[in-house]
């Protein structure tokens, strides 16, 4: 991927820029003494809009912030939250660190794998659900815990609760 990034794109910036995002990022960059500091905020903005960080997004961000595309890639690839591939509409992230593990997270992950017919880091064929494990979410007193996309946590989970949550998401789909 990085070698592709170094090769210059045939498109000129004007053709592919998202002016609204550029304005937003330029505004954020004012809050830092160095423009480069806005690279993480920019990646968050692009991921929010497009669901993942494409090569084109990295090139756009590089252009806005006067960075080399490979420098943006370097940052993107370091942080677990930034992804370079699309995920399902509902990204289920189940904590399996120590406190959640002690409270049965393993069983929960087994259960969800079974009902979604999915392994960790896979997406259902209809693109609705992606399953991942998460590192400690900072809610160990309400273990086991799951975060869907970037929303409020689902706490004190058990199979029954999980079934209800998945069903309510399914209803949202229809």
């Amino acid at each position: 991927m990085s070698s592709l990034l170094i090769a210059s794109s045939s498109q000129t910036p004007d053709e592919y820029f998202h002016p609204d995002l550029r304005d937003q990022i330029n505004e954020i960059a004012l809050r830092y003494p160095e423009r480069r500091s806005a690279v993480m905020p920019a990646l968050h903005i692009y991921q929010e809009r497009f669901g993942y960080i494409s090569q084109q997004s990295m090139e756009e961000i590089a252009d806005i912030l006067d960075m080399a595309p490979v420098q943006v890639y370097e940052v993107t690839s370091f942080y677990h939250h930034f992804r370079t591939e699309p995920v399902g509409k509902y990204h289920l992230k189940i904590c399996n660190n120590i406190s959640c593990m002690l409270m049965g997270a393993d069983c929960l992950i087994g259960h969800i794998q079974q009902i979604l017919q999915l392994k960790c880091d896979e997406t259902t064929r209809d693109g609705m659900f992606t399953l991942s494990t998460a590192e400690c979410l900072g809610s160990c007193d309400t273990a086991p815990v799951m975060q869907i996309n970037n929303d409020a946590y689902c706490e004190h989970l058990d199979a029954e609760k999980l079934n209800k949550i998945l069903r309510s998401l399914e209803n949202k789909i229809e």
Binding site: G104, D126, F129
Partner: peptide, 21 residues
């Protein structure tokens, strides 16, 4: 046998192509 508050009896499966249980 890990301590578990879970009931694993559920027999439902998600059908990937149908959006259905």
């Amino acid at each position: 046998k890990p301590y578990s508050p879970l009931m694993l009896s559920s027999e439902q499966r998600y059908d990937h192509s149908m959006h259905q249980w």
